[in-house]
Amino acid sequence: MRLVNRPLAFILAAAVTVACVIVIIEVIAFHIKSGPLVLHWTTWYHWAHKTRWNQLVVQVWSAILIVIGLLILAVELKPRRITRLRLHSRDDATDAGVTRTGLARSLRAAATGVDGISDATVKVRRGRARVAATSSGRGRPAAEALSEPVTQTLQERLDGLGLRHPPRLKVRVTPRSR
C-alpha cells in the first residue's frame, strides 16, 4: 500500500503545486490588466456561463468525479492486510511479532514434517490460518487418518509460539492426485 501511495501522493502534490502556481500567475496577470498567461481560463469562464446544470456534460463529469473519489477512498480505507502477528513480550518496550509469511512457512514445515504428508499450502489471514496438506498415500481414508495428527502438530506449533492472538486453525488433508 505504501508503495502505491507514494507515487499517488507525489502526483497529487505536484498537481496541487502546479495548480496553485497557475492561479497565482493568472491572478497577478489579471490585476496588471494582462490577458491569460499560462492557462486560457476565459474559455472555461464563458463555458460555465453558458452551460446549465442539467446538461449531459455536467452529469458525465460528475459521474467521473464520483468514480475517481470512490476508487481513491476504497483503496485508502480498505483494511490493511496483516503483515505480522504479535508475540507476548517480556516488557512493554519490546514489540515482537512473527511475520505472516514466516508463520505460514513455519506451519508448512511442521505439516510436511508429519509422516505421510508430502506437501502443504498455508495461508495466514486475519484471525485464521488455513492449511491444505497433501498425503503421500492415495485414497481418501489414508488422508482422513492423517487429519488429526496434522491438526495436533500444527496446533502445538501455534500454541508454542506465544502469539497474543493466535489464529484459528483450519486443516484439510487431501489424498495425492493420480
Partner: peptide, 22 residues
C-alpha cells in the same frame, strides 16, 4: 491527504450530479 482528496472529489461529483438531476 489522499483520503481528503478522494472525499473532496466525491463531494464535488455528488453535488454536481444532485444539482444536475434537479
Amino acid at each position: 491527504a489522499l483520503i481528503v482528496f478522494g472525499l473532496l472529489i466525491l463531494i464535488i461529483g455528488a453535488g454536481g450530479l444532485i444539482a444536475s438531476l434537479g
